[in-house]
Design a protein around this nucleic acid. Structure first.
Ligand SMILES: NC(=O)c1ccc[n+]([C@@H]2O[C@H](COP(=O)([O-])OP(=O)(O)OC[C@H]3O[C@@H](n4cnc5c(N)ncnc54)[C@H](O)[C@@H]3O)[C@@H](O)[C@H]2O)c1
Ligand SMILES: NC(=O)c1ccc[n+]([C@@H]2O[C@H](COP(=O)([O-])OP(=O)(O)OC[C@H]3O[C@@H](n4cnc5c(N)ncnc54)[C@H](O)[C@@H]3O)[C@@H](O)[C@H]2O)c1
Lengths: 218, 218
DNA sequence: TTCACGCTGTGAAAAAGTTAACAAAGTCCA
DNA sequence: TGGACTTTGTTAACTTTTTCACAGCGTGAA
């Protein structure tokens, strides 16, 4: 199947929609309307319909969208055919929290291994994830054909670790370190900017009134 | 001074620029050109110039932008006049990591107090931040006129805590819990979607080739 | 049957955000 | 001095994303 090239923003929202409708389905619901999902996700109804259209998911004017179909269609669009394996580098505070989080909330993603430089951590197993020495990143990633990595090391180490990951064949990196890493153009890097996010919240909290831009309804 | 209404995306990038030029200035640099900053921040030179224009910051064709001026101008634009105080609710794994992080990387933001429901944490001081019972959120937030809150509690608790915060006068919330919270329209909420971010990275790692959209140069 | 209703799917318009492009202005070198 | 460079500030063109608006359609009431 050829990738139908879903817009970046849409991929992001689809993931959120899925979480929401799953919650909804636990509550016993079978289907919902675009405006309901919009309200829950914080967007407009038209946007929801458009996003769902992008993944070829259609609803009925009577029932709205069936939750089953929806979850399946989103899965088909954004998940891989199979479970995807990732590695995590830097099992500090944040790294440990992430291992728990992924295990709990991302059923399609598996942290296959963790790496750290701290000898006291190497060899241990945290929540089912074994911790290896950073030295073995190249070998394990290449051998296991792992394509995605989470970076939770201090800023100073980020670039070096990233280089190793890329050399070993990683195609996507989620970087939590507060320093921009440079990679070849065919590697997708997502930079988590907590500082920027915090400062943005602080900014808009001060200029409150600008938030219509963000959250249209409700 | 009236808020010059800086676009959301620009606020975000400015924050990143500041971090980068600060690093640069530690390295001894005095000034840099738009294209240099662009490369470091992962954008285009034109965008950098445009962003800086938005905050009335101008450079010279000879030296580029002076780092001092730049940091000051960004500060003027996005920081408050004074240091801003925040509270954090939920001092678990993530909460603890965030306290360290803010202290280290966000000089203009101060976590004034933390709140938790766990009696074993209440009364303790973590990295200079005292932990109070959730019960006292309303009182302390209102009394201290705190306007920004970080939410790092489990999803189930998020809405209830948010309601309390809003009632006490908070205007901005950064929510790490994986559930969308509803607030009055005059409260700015930033939802941190780790799941969505991870799934996005996984998606683009698979369809690698879509990343030109993301990172144009280098 | 017929009509009004409410929601979907979608083209078209609008808005937001990004890139291109170039005049202006200073520097460097001859 | 003067002309070739370099980089800014900024306007205009372009792209992406969001919203509007409405036709189409199954339903249920009359
Ligand atoms: N704490 C937060 O909330 C937060 C938020 C966003 C980003 N970050 C960033 O994420 C990173 C990790 O944060 P943290 O709070 O977990 O820090 P931490 O110090 O608790 O953890 C860092 C871990 O990385 C390991 N490490 C150091 N150098 C390494 C290397 N070269 N190779 C492999 N492992 C190495 C350390 O042994 C440690 O286990 C930091 O860059 C931090 O700035 C933190
Ligand atoms: N771990 C991650 O990497 C990560 C990433 C993104 C989001 N999150 C989310 O952030 C939240 C916190 O994650 P964590 O890993 O720190 O979990 P955690 O269980 O370590 O911490 C949660 C903390 O909140 C406290 N708490 C529970 N109910 C409360 C209430 N009603 N009022 C005040 N405090 C309360 C608990 O006592 C605990 O200290 C969760 O919702 C998690 O899903 C986690």
């Amino acid at each position: 199947m050829i990738a139908p090239e879903i817009p970046t923003k849409t991929v992001e929202r689809l993931s959120r929609y899925r979480r929401i409708v799953r919650e909804r389905s636990d509550g016993g619901a079978i289907s919902l309307f675009s405006y309901e999902l919009a309200k829950l996700a914080g967007g407009s109804a038209a946007q929801v319909r458009r996003d769902l259209m992008a993944i070829g998911c259609s609803g009925s004017p009577i029932y709205g969208y069936k939750i089953d179909t929806l979850v399946e269609a989103i899965g088909l669009a954004i998940d891989g055919a199979t479970e995807q394996r990732m590695v995590l580098v830097g099992l500090g505070h944040l790294g440990a929290a992430l291992v728990d989080f992924v295990e709990r909330y991302c059923p399609k993603l598996v942290i296959f291994a963790a790496f750290d430089i701290d000898p006291s951590k190497i060899g241990r197993v945290h929540h089912g994830v074994r911790v290896y020495s950073v030295e073995s990143i190249g070998q394990i990633v290449a051998e296991q054909q792992i394509r995605i990595a989470i970076l939770a090391v201090p800023g100073e180490a980020a670039q070096a670790v990233a280089d190793g990951l890329v050399a070993a064949g990683v195609h996507g990196i989620l970087n939590f370190a507060p320093s921009v890493i440079r990679t070849p153009i065919n590697v997708y890097v997502e930079q988590t900017e907590i500082t920027a996010t915090l400062e943005k919240v602080a900014y808009f909290a001060r200029h409150y009134g600008a938030q219509q831009k963000q959250r249209k309804e409700r």
